[in-house]
């Protein structure tokens, strides 16, 4: 199929709106389900995207999620203009977290966010500068 057959979704990741955190991922999940993407693929996309969304919410002060669905793959960009990641290699380590005690009490900050993104995507790139924000790009091959 031609590249133009994609679907494009843009979702705001609201700042300080805890109740809506995860809604961008939820919207993408519903769209992929409607498009007939295999449930196992939807599951891993949901897991990875939720983590990126929550990070943008908790650490980035909100941002945007851009999703492009192609016949053979799904590409997701999560962008925030928050405090950025000082040491990406360290942040990739399972169990490492800079989440506040308050956020940890709510079940976040397990230090599994970036590992979950890496384990569930086929390609993960993170561009981040301290003080300028973070861009997380993920690609998922969905067959066809």
């Amino acid at each position: 199929m031609a590249e133009s057959n994609k679907m494009h979704l843009e979702t705001v990741i609201a700042k300080d709106d805890f109740a809506s955190a995860g809604e961008a991922s939820s919207k993408v999940k519903k769209t992929l389900t409607m498009l007939g993407v295999a449930p196992a693929q939807i599951k891993r996309i949901s897991v990875a995207m939720y983590e990126a969304e929550i990070n943008a919410f908790i650490h980035g002060g909100g941002g945007m999620a851009y999703t492009d669905v192609y016949p053979d793959r799904v590409e997701i960009l999560i962008e925030d203009h928050g405090k950025g990641i000082e040491d990406i290699e360290l942040a990739m380590q399972e169990g490492y977290s800079t989440a506040s005690e308050e956020v940890r009490m709510m079940g976040f900050g397990a230090g599994m966010g970036l590992p979950n993104m890496k384990n569930n995507s086929d390609n993960l790139t993170i561009d981040s500068r301290p003080g300028e924000g973070t861009k997380v790009r993920m690609c998922f091959n969905i067959g066809n």
């Binding site: 805890f18 109740a19 955190a21 995860g22 809604e23 991922s25 939820s26 999940k29 449930p39 599951k43 949901s46 897991v47 939720y50 709510m106 079940g107």
Partner: peptide
């Protein structure tokens, strides 16, 4: 808290 609902929905 409210976010457990998003998690439940996304995780099936």
């Amino acid at each position: 808290h409210t976010n457990i609902i998003a998690v439940a929905e996304l995780a099936g």
